[in-house]
Design a protein around this nucleic acid. Structure first.
Lengths: 231, 231
DNA sequence: TCGTTTTTTTAAAAAAATGTTGAATCATCT
DNA sequence: AGATGATTCAACATTTTTTTAAAAAAACGA
């Protein structure tokens, strides 16, 4: 499974060059040409490393970096055209793992990529494997906690259990019977709309509050949790 | 509890300059003036970060780096005088975390040091250290003592054991069963709320007394010890 | 569009979990 | 044995969560 690298870079010449080189090294490559779309792409959270230009249209590299850090520890390598130390410093302090100054030698960048990926591979085995992410929404099983954009979302146990089950099965429609069985743990007698009520609680605490829509209704069937960034 | 930084650098002017700057930032600093003695010093394994010159007498920086990596994951930042890419690349691939090209701006180096230390702090789940710290709260295993802001907190044995277990697993939710098993050392029969009571004791001696909240309740699950600074 | 079905929303009752307290028990030291 | 402090237990108070039920709204099919 090749590592997937996201390049966020507005100069298409550089982006293209990087793409070729990285593909040649066996990485999968995706490109975003401005800060905002780069951030959006990153929110799908299936990227292994990000190469991020400091100077970007729509949203600066620093800002992109800062926002990504709210939901992800993905390694970020900054590219900076200037030789301005203060930029480098803010870049690093805003959460980047490393940076490379343009013009750069591709070999150096490749070495830094290897280091960053290796480091992540070493540290990944503890806390991060216990987390389910969808865009800015992060569910941490160890902490039994959910955050959106870094801000804690306070959920009751059932709410948490339900969200966990939904996120573990994201992209799959779950009918009420399945939800009851797996979250409540028993077959209900008669009809209760307890699932509906809890779906509502989750929506009001997440979807409504943050203006997103993770939980969709499939009429006549049940509910489905969908990744935000995928739409 | 300053971080200890080892400088391995033969040019005494640079070494001295670094020493001053780093001490000014509040780090503890040690210096070795050649590769071999630097390696020896590192073997004591009580260093938090190493600044390693590439060109050294007796043993090259690359070699020092490679050997240190055999027994330690301590962050290593390489200093290289040359602007030779191949050196940088070998440096990174030989296990260094980062490098800085001479002449360097001290601010840049400081930023990289901060990043490296922060990264290490995140991945270090210290289990074998003799002291566990969270903000102003310090638990010393050797002395079997707890202090808050330097002031001793008097705990009974069970209180201490419980706090120790909580702090060893900070950031992780622990249910009552786990607490009973690990602190009391037996499986309980029926239900007693002895854990609840002890949590209360700890809270009254720490959380309430100092107006903090280390121990949080996860309703329906258990308790969690959280770093004050986090979140 | 209208009637029907399904889902969403609301509110209040019921249940469950946790916090608090004081007294009983246990261990240790003198 | 008695004093002291630590630990456990049990009962009650408080808080929070869960469930229920029913009205309102929305979606759907004829």
């Amino acid at each position: 499974m090749a590592e997937r690298i996201l390049i966020i870079e507005d100069e298409s010449k550089i982006a293209r060059f990087l793409e070729l080189e990285l593909k040649h090294e066996g990485y999968e490559v995706e490109i975003a040409y401005d800060g905002r779309s780069g951030l959006e792409r990153a929110e799908k959270n299936d990227i292994d490393l990000i190469i991020l230009d400091l100077m970007l249209p729509l949203m600066s590299g620093i800002e992109v970096c800062r926002r990504i850090r709210k939901f992800s520890d993905v390694p970020i390598i900054m590219l900076t055209a200037k030789d301005d130390i203060s930029d480098k410093v803010t870049g690093l302090d805003s959460g980047a793992d490393d940076y490379v100054t343009k013009p750069f030698a591709i070999e150096e960048l490749l070495a830094r990529i290897r280091v960053a990926l290796k480091r992540r591979a070493m540290s990944t085995r503890d806390t991060n494997s216990e987390t389910i992410t969808s865009g800015k929404l992060v569910l941490n099983k160890l902490q039994h906690k959910v955050t959106y954009d870094g801000e804690e979302v306070f959920l009751s146990k059932k709410e948490y259990d339900l969200l966990l089950y939904l996120m573990e099965n994201k992209g799959i429609v779950l009918d009420r019977e399945k939800l009851i069985e797996n979250v409540w743990g028993y077959d209900f007698i008669g009809d209760t709309n307890v699932t509906d009520v809890y779906i509502r609680y989750l929506r009001s605490k997440i979807d409504q509050k943050y203006g997103v829509s993770f939980i969709k209704t499939i009429r006549g069937v049940g509910y489905i949790f969908e990744d935000q960034a995928e739409n």
